[in-house]
């Protein structure tokens, strides 16, 4: 795996592709996100890490407007999600892809139909074209031969690759990944990380919650460390992990002690 040259992500000159401004979210009377801001330039790959309950997943869902933030706004290419209003929120979500920890493939559809259905129903692509596109996306994740199988007939790693193909078929401007490998058996993690690395090399803008620091450190532009609903540290992975005093470095070394993950 080769990293992208430091400091000059593509498209850095223009306005950010995605800008989350002062996001606040309260769930069940508890403040989960406390005035969080984060932005991504086109082609950037950033990672969110932090202890569980720190608000990482909630932040992803708020960026996607799957959860409507209680305060703040998300701008995608300068267009405000808040100003779009309730009616157009579906159009906003369509521009962003989400990969879930437990895949969330549609159980009643084959791999190919899982990829094709949003093209057909949401983008109104004719059936034949949607199917052809779906096959193309499955090929890209190495699953063309599994197109006719149902989710229950696929391994965890295969399911997650189908879900990546499903999100990619919608040509999202931004991809959000919520612990995409943490529900997988260790031997299946590699195949999914490979697909994600390929997306990164292809210039996909991505924000990922992960504990796979070994994978992330060579590939991402920035690590954001979250705790208690705030981003308390952010920086280039080499810089953050090299500084023994950083919260990120202590967290990661404890993580690798516990799990043996690098």
């Amino acid at each position: 795996m080769t990293g992208r040259p430091e400091g000059s992500p593509p498209g850095a000159a223009g306005p950010p592709l995605m800008e989350a401004r002062n996001i606040t979210k309260i769930l069940g009377g508890k403040l989960i996100l406390d005035d969080v801001s984060l932005s991504l330039n086109r082609g950037e790959f950033k990672v969110l890490i932090g202890p569980s309950g720190s608000g990482k997943s909630t932040l992803l869902q708020c960026v996607h407007f799957l959860l409507i933030p209680d305060g703040g706004d998300v701008l995608l290419e300068g267009a405000s999600a808040v100003e779009m209003g309730h009616k157009n929120v579906c159009a906003f979500r369509r521009e962003i892809g989400m990969i879930f920890q437990d895949f969330n493939l549609f159980d009643h559809l084959t791999a190919r139909d899982n990829v094709a259905i949003a093209l057909r129903k949401v983008k109104k692509v004719p059936k034949a074209a949607a199917m052809a596109r779906a096959m193309g996306e499955l090929e890209r994740v190495g699953l063309a031969d599994k197109a006719g199988l149902y989710p229950a007939q696929l391994s965890g790693g295969q399911k997650q690759r189908v879900s990546i193909a499903r999100a990619m078929a919608m040509e999202p401007k931004l991809m959000l990944l919520d612990e995409p490998t943490s529900a997988l058996d260790p031997e299946l993690i590699g195949e999914v990380l490979n697909v994600i690395a390929n997306l990164a090399r292809g210039g996909m803008t991505m924000l990922m919650v992960t504990h796979q620091i070994g994978f992330a450190r060579h590939l991402v532009n920035e690590i954001n460390f979250m705790e208690d609903g705030r981003i308390i540290e952010r920086g280039h992975p080499e810089a953050l992990l090299a500084d023994p005093a950083s919260r990120t470095a202590t967290f990661c070394s404890r993580l690798s002690e516990l799990t043996g993950n690098q």
């Binding site: 579906c90 989400m98 969330n104 949401v122 879900s163 999100a167």
Partner: peptide
């Protein structure tokens, strides 16, 4: 499962879709 609806939402499905 709730995840099925979340996935649909994330792909831009409207409620009726």
């Amino acid at each position: 499962r709730k995840g099925q609806f979340q996935a649909a939402k994330s792909l831009g499905f409207t409620d009726s879709q």
